[in-house]
Simulated assay, not measured.
Amino acid sequence: MLKILSNLLCAVVCLCVVQMPAMAAADTRMQVDVLAEEHNVEVNWLHANVREAAALALPELWSRMVPQYAISKIPKRVKAVLFMQKASPTKDGVRITFHQQRVINYLKKHELPLIAEQPALNVVIQLYNKHGRPMGGTANDLLDYAANEAAAKGYRIDAQGASLVLLWRWLNEKQVSLSVRGNSKLSEYTETRRLTAADPLRQLKPWMNEVLLKARDAYIEPTAAEAEGEDLDVAQDQLNPSNGLAMQPLTKPEVELRLTIQKEASIADQVLFEQDLRRDPRILELSLRRVNRDGQQYYLQLNGSDDQWLKQWFARRGMTLTATIEGWVVQ
C-alpha cells in the first residue's frame, strides 16, 4: 500500500513539473549599474548611500523605458527609492534593480508614453563598398557593438525577435545609402548621408544607434487618453452616415492590380525587390507574370482598398509610380 501511494505521489510531482509554464525572458532594463568612476565618487560612498545611488540610476532607467521625445515630460522630483526592488554592491559601484510594475504604474499614472515590454530585435547588418563587395568584418563589428549596447539602450538582441535589416551601400567615395527594412514596428525607409574617408566603423556606430532607438521607440504603448481617442474616432466613423462608413464592417475589401516595372535589374535586385514587397503586411499576393528586356510585370493583390501607399513605398526606393489605364507603371 505504501509503495502504491509513493508511486502515485511521484506521478503527481512529475505531472506538476511538466505542466509548469516556461519563464519569460528577464527584462534587463530594470538593472542599472551605477559606476563610481562615471559619477566621480568613491565606491564605498555608493555602497553606503543606496538612496543616492538609486537617484543616479533613475535617469538611465527612464531613457530605456520612455521614448526620446517624452523624456523631458517626466516629473523632475521623483524619489527613485520608491521604485527600487534591491541594491547589490559591485566592485565598481552598485547595481540597482527596479520594480518593473511600479515603474509602469507610475508612468501610466502620469499619462506618459512608455515601452512596457523590452523589444526583442533580430538585427541583421549588411555593408557593401562602392564596388559592390561585402564588408563582412565591419558588419560583424557593428553587430557586436549593437549587442553590447542593447541593455543600456533598452532593447534586446534576439534571433527569435522581429527582424530589422540595416543595409549600407557606398554609392561613391563619400555618399552612403542606408536601407532599413524588416518586420519590426519601425516603418521601412531609406536615407543617404555623406561620410568622410576616415574609419567607417566609427562613423556608422552613431548612425546605427539612431536607427535602433527609432526601432525601440516604435514599440511604445499609447497613453490612456490616446487609446480612448482612437476608439472614439473609430466609433464616430462607423456611426457617421456622411462619411459613407455607417454600419460598415472594419474589414476592407481586397484590391487586385497589375504592376509593370520599366527598369532593368539584375536577378539579385529583382529577388530583393520581391522579398521586400512580399514582406509588407498590406500585400496579400505577389506573382511574376512576365519578364522582358524592358522590365517585369506583376500581379498584385492588396489587403484593403487603399493603394496610395504604394507611391511612397517606391519613392523611398528612388522610383516613381504612375497610374495608367493598364495598371500601375514603375520607372
Rank of each mutant, 00 (worst) to 15 (best):
N105T: 05
A162F: 06
N148W: 12
D158H: 05
G161C: 07
G93K: 01
V103P: 04
E111Q: 13
D144W: 09
V165C: 11
A80E: 00
T90K: 03
V165T: 15
F83N: 03
G137H: 08
L166T: 04
M135E: 15
L166H: 05
K79W: 00
V94A: 01
K109N: 06
V103R: 05
I157R: 13
V124F: 14
A120I: 06
P113G: 09
Q101R: 09
H110M: 09
E173C: 04
E117Y: 07
L114F: 08
V94C: 02
D141M: 15
T97E: 03
A80V: 02
E117V: 07
G93M: 01
R156Q: 15
V94P: 00
Q160E: 12
N105S: 01
L166A: 08
L164C: 06
R156H: 14
A159N: 09
K79E: 01
L127D: 01
T97F: 04
P89D: 05
L143A: 14
K79C: 03
N148R: 15
E149V: 13
G132I: 07
D144P: 00
Q118S: 11
A151K: 14
D92V: 02
E117Q: 11
A147H: 14
V81C: 01
L143F: 14
Q101F: 02
Q160V: 04
I125T: 11
L107Q: 05
A152Y: 04
Q175C: 09
T90F: 04
V81A: 02
I157M: 15
Q101W: 04
D92W: 05
H110V: 09
P89F: 01
H99P: 04
R102L: 02
R169L: 09
D141A: 15
M84D: 01
Q118K: 13
M84T: 00
G154L: 11
N129T: 09
P119E: 05
A120D: 08
T97K: 06
R102M: 03
A159H: 08
L112W: 04
A147C: 11
M135V: 13
P113A: 10
A152Q: 09
Y128C: 10
L82F: 00
R169S: 11
G161A: 06
A159L: 10
R133A: 13
